[in-house]
Amino acid sequence: MPSEWLDWSFRRCEALGFQGLWIGEDIGRPGEIFTLTGLAVLSTAGIPVGIGLTSPFIRNLSTLARAAYSLHEASKGRFRLGLGVGGKKDLESLGVKVDKPLKAMREALTLLRSLWKGESLTFQSEFFQFKNYKAKFKAEIPVFLGARGEKMLRLAGEEADGALVSGPRGYLEKALAFSREGLNCTLTQPKKLVKVAWLPTILTTSEEDLTLARKVAATILLDTPSKVFAYSKMDLGKVEEVKRVAASSLREAASLVDRETLEALTVYGDSEEVCSKLRELAALGFDEVVFGPPYGKNWEKAVEEVAKAWLRK
């Protein structure tokens, strides 16, 4: 997103009635996630601000721990850290390969919590190395896991404070069930898991917006494991066909995305429809629903209209 848009949205979001902000990291693209989130924190006064998401495998974990602590302090406790493994291609562009994402993510979570407790740490694994390291700060920072697959959702339930859930609409109920299973496995005292639904949202006011929505849907199809679709009520033959085409031409694949697929993978429509669909998501059992990018060709208008429509109800 252009910087002017970020500045505008950070400054306006509270006045528009949004109750939280999530800032995503685009690996390899301009816009450093911590300073951008810092801008959001310093531009808002009372709402939670989160990173949704960053990968713990693309920088030294001590840097992530320090940056998260600094954002926690800068926001006076409003910060939430969202962690995700990262897209395969994005990770590869940085020379990172995560063969056992579940194990590595569990390690990252445990180490971060330990660092924030001010414990002295010695640890050696494929991704993380510490030797008598001790941070000079302490904090309790809520960690959210970006999860789509069954095992990661269980891990979120078991270890994290929240889950940022995405995927086909027909899959979301199943996803909530997986996270609940993890929650039931937790060995510590009973805790609450904040469940956040995050589907791409597009305010469609023109044919251009619909084209954008289709392109987004094709991208999701390409990135989502087939297993996830098996749990949804989508036509698997159609899914595989779009995926096959998307691998060579996203534009062509977008033209194959029909209304049903669009409905399953995105939240789209006019402002009233978008709000109604977001409410349907909340009714599934989510604590928060995200009005997330790409919004539509006219971002400012989309954000303002949806915010107004949401408050009208």
């Binding site: 911590f34 810092g38 940056a67 302090e73 390291y133 001790k134």
Partner: peptide
């Protein structure tokens, strides 16, 4: 310093 807060965020808050 690897054990202290993240300097870019200090600079950002100071700039603000």
């Amino acid at each position: 310093r690897p054990c202290l807060v993240y300097p870019p965020l200090l600079a950002e808050a100071a700039a603000s």
